[in-house]
Design a protein around this nucleic acid. Sequence first.
DNA 1: TGACTTACTACTAAAATCATAGTAACTGAT
DNA 2: ATCAGTTACTATGATTTTAGTAGTAAGTCA
Lengths: 156, 156
Amino acid sequence: MILVVSHYQKDINMKNLSNQPCLIARSLALVGDAWSMLIMRDAHAGLTRFDEFRKSLGIAPTMLTARLAALTDEGLLEKRRYSDRPPRDEYVLTEAGRDFLPVLFAIGAWGRKHRSGGNVTRFFDAETGTEIDPVTIDRETGAPVGTRPIRIAAPE
Amino acid sequence: MILVVSHYQKDINMKNLSNQPCLIARSLALVGDAWSMLIMRDAHAGLTRFDEFRKSLGIAPTMLTARLAALTDEGLLEKRRYSDRPPRDEYVLTEAGRDFLPVLFAIGAWGRKHRSGGNVTRFFDAETGTEIDPVTIDRETGAPVGTRPIRIAAPE
DNA sequence: TGACTTACTACTAAAATCATAGTAACTGAT
DNA sequence: ATCAGTTACTATGATTTTAGTAGTAAGTCA
């Protein structure tokens, strides 16, 4: 299915992921862990506050603090003060954060095909009510990704 | 952008992710870490052998053993003997593994938009040579995902 | 015979994670 | 005025995971 192997990285470790030429590796620096992904999912579902995330996920507050700070630093979430007295902040999706939705859908679509069974959560268009069935295609040709061989090209 | 919040999970922790009703959470049980994602990327790039993965990723062999075993258990990779004497196995993508490519592309597409800068690895159609620019759309309407509000519905 | 390859396992140190508890700064009800 | 409740955290220590290096088993090749 895939043809060319290239040395598109050197000396990967979990600390220098963001310096890799590969965009997948570089993106995984931020969201390459399940908590960050689940926080992004919940943010898309409309959660904004610390305690909402904490209760939804059952995540330890230390973890949540660290993840929210990282996602904020990296520009996927924005910390916004919604009350001065008492000081209260909420975390809302930035444009980069909203653009992350296709990743969540791709994961969900894969899960629907290969991990469903029993009751599963589903996604709907909020206005029309029709279920969303996401496919990834090439913008130019419209061909679904995965049907044709690909080549990975190293930079320069 | 998103309207309905639902209690689509209870008592998440990193051990029971695969029992969650949410397909995203359930899928993250397998690939919710950067190493597994990078192994899947490399598998799509044509790597099959233990040492190929080890050298490409610089991953500790203990980690690699564990990840390959998990991905094999979960049906994304298949362990295949390619030599009896000496006994040698390789890891090849199953259909479920190949279906994972859109997730990698969605992550790459996000990275291209929000994390590029400097040289980056790019993806091409191996036959036509044209660059691939992946978009996630709804199969029915053809509308790009992320442009319309979504609703997340809990099971039953 | 000895160097080399492949696919690992063993071991230990370092780091991350988990759960629980506690704190700061308030609000709102009695 | 006091006291429970809320929100957004930080502190702490036990447990678990990960990283890195070294070593091993079963061969091949010269």
